[in-house]
Amino acid sequence: MKMRSSVAVAGIAVLALFGTACGKDGSPEAKTPAGSTGGSQGAPGAPGGAAPELPTYTPKTGVALTGSKTFDAAKSRGKLVVGAKEDQPFLGSKDPATGKVSGFDIEIAKMIAADLGFGPDKIEFKAIASTNRENALVNGDIDYYVGTYSITDKRKQQVSFAGPYYIAGQSLLVRKNETAITGKDTIKGKTVCSAKGSTPLQNLQTNFPDTTTRVFDTYSLCVESLLSNQVDAVSTDDAILKGYAAKDPKALKVVGEPFTVENYGVGLNKDDSVFRNAVSDALDAHEKSGDWKKAYDATLGLSGSAAPAIPALVRY
């Protein structure tokens, strides 16, 4: 019965693509309230049962950055072009039904934009292949990049960073009812999943030889395997894991202290120190004003994990 109706749905869906839109309006119901709309459903970790709302930003007026090529280009373009991820829930995620991106990284991007004088409607988010990130910054395809981008010395040779705005570290995502896994010392003999070619995976394979690793193409496949009991945990940066947990807090949780350190920064063109200072100022202002905390609570915070300390900015 179940099968027959779903086959019918598949047929309809395919047909609908070619014919006039005969589908239901709107978009499928989200598992957790989508922040900005301020849904009425209660989310765990939110006192009083009301879902935390995203902060709003007032774009500054009359901003002028003398000597900043990036800013001048954006100004004459009339909008900012920001590189972001689109497949990481509650960090940088594109809703297929609306085409809008949302998440913690996106909020960081909006904060910065506001202080540069650009409202949310004046930002164009652009997906960038990971091999092309440095490239895109160097030749000005994007004005800045916000997407779980770790500050490393190697990258600093080509680009510069404002931040860190978040200190992430490798952690573990488990099913809500999991009791055996509480941190990195309890994964012996367990099956842990990570994504191909990633640093967390290499860390697992070299430092946790008694743990079975399962490798998938994307973290969403890992999460699906976790939900269907095929693996015991998923391991990568806690920010990414919190994003998945925040989407499905009834089924997932992040456990244990992070056991590596990744400093997420805003990627910038190396030669534009005026712009870098302005971005740092913007981060500083919004961290102090409480926007950072608000943005966290309305995104990654929905996972039930408390906000970590806001890292000190490193200016150079």
Partner: peptide, 11 residues
């Protein structure tokens, strides 16, 4: 190629 480009070699 991905690793080399990320390490800063000219694509």
């Amino acid at each position: 190629s991905a690793e080399m480009v990320e390490n800063g070699y000219k694509s």
